[in-house]
Design a protein around this nucleic acid. Structure first.
Lengths: 183, 183
DNA sequence: GCCTAGGTGAACAGATCTGTTCATGTCAAG
DNA sequence: CTTGACATGAACAGATCTGTTCACCTAGGC
């Protein structure tokens, strides 16, 4: 087993950061909830910031994989891949563990754009947007701005759902996305 | 002069909360930057949370007033008031002091939906959406979902601009909004 | 001059934060 | 049985946090 405790720390921290935010979640709480000792945490991570970055990095990879799977499945069903993202959002909003997007929330807490955490969030969003663009199919040469608009809709839906506690945000955004795709 | 120090505390705290976030901004920093003593702060506010709520409440009133003014001016110029909001966003994104929306950021840091700060943010967003709905003009009976969609676009533009540092988000959102309004 | 209201500055309490150190415990391989 | 790798628990340092208290100062009204 490769580093089971490191992984357990990341998973526990991920949950707590979501529920209570990054600054509000102390290292001691992560340790208590995970049952790992403080010395072990600081063996795997040089600082709390490094733990945060590891959590976001893992979440980044999971999200990208989920989006790719969702789009692939949609293409098999002869549906527009870009629209399928909003169905995935809909599922997410209706799950118990929805406290907004990790990256948007991290951007909010680390608001300065030269902060490493803020920049990681920006890179994640750019990667998602690129993924959308790559899956637009044969839609003329204006793919880039269209992907940007769809990406903006994704962020809008997430924030709308979280701040207002309104789980219908994904459907709302999907209608707008569908309009964009018909040209 | 009615309570000039109280106002000064709110203004200073507003700036610092924006730049560094709510948890990351300590009371002591607000005091140092404002030049007010700690005893005075705790005379006007029973706790840090109350100061945060006062900052958000003031920001709420200012935002509502700005949106109303923007829409009124647009109507005088025979432009769609709902679209004018995105021009106001564009100005905001290009100003120096743009660190995202106070209410979205506060929602992110106080992620639990039963938190007083989270709820104040939700009420603000609902009020803005109501304002949009009231200014849709003669657009059939489906004003409510249209206002919700425009509100989602506003949030999307703000988050897009802040996380990615892309100031063109307002124009991107405005194009989508214009599409929605033509019916 | 005197009183009062409001503000300051500084000290203080008590909690909590990140990060370090180290003696002890455990367990598997040789 | 011994060794080594790994983890624990607890104490510790030092900073920082919110919130309280109080002696002092200052300015305006009488």
């Amino acid at each position: 087993m490769p580093q089971p405790r490191k992984q357990h720390l990341i998973d526990t921290a991920y949950r707590l950061f979501n529920e209570h935010g990054y600054h509000a979640t102390g290292i001691d709480l992560v340790l208590a909830e995970s049952g790992v000792s403080k010395a072990t945490l600081y063996k795997y991570f040089r600082s709390k910031e490094e733990l945060i970055l590891a959590v976001l990095q893992q979440r980044h990879e999971q999200q990208i994989a989920l989006i790719q799977r969702t789009m692939e499945q949609a293409r098999e069903n002869a549906e527009p891949p870009a629209l399928a993202i909003f169905d995935a959002l809909d599922n997410w909003f209706r799950s118990e563990a929805f406290f907004g997007c990790n990256f948007i929330n991290a951007s909010a807490e680390y608001a300065q754009d030269d902060d490493a955490i803020h920049q990681l969030a920006a890179r994640h969003k750019a990667r998602v947007q690129q993924l959308i663009e790559d899956n637009l199919g044969a839609l003329g040469e204006d793919k880039a701005p269209l992907a940007a608009q769809l990406s903006l809709l994704v962020d809008g839906a997430i924030v709308y759902a979280h701040t207002r506690g309104d789980k219908n945000a994904a459907k709302l955004a999907k209608k707008m996305a569908a309009r964009l795709l018909v040209g």
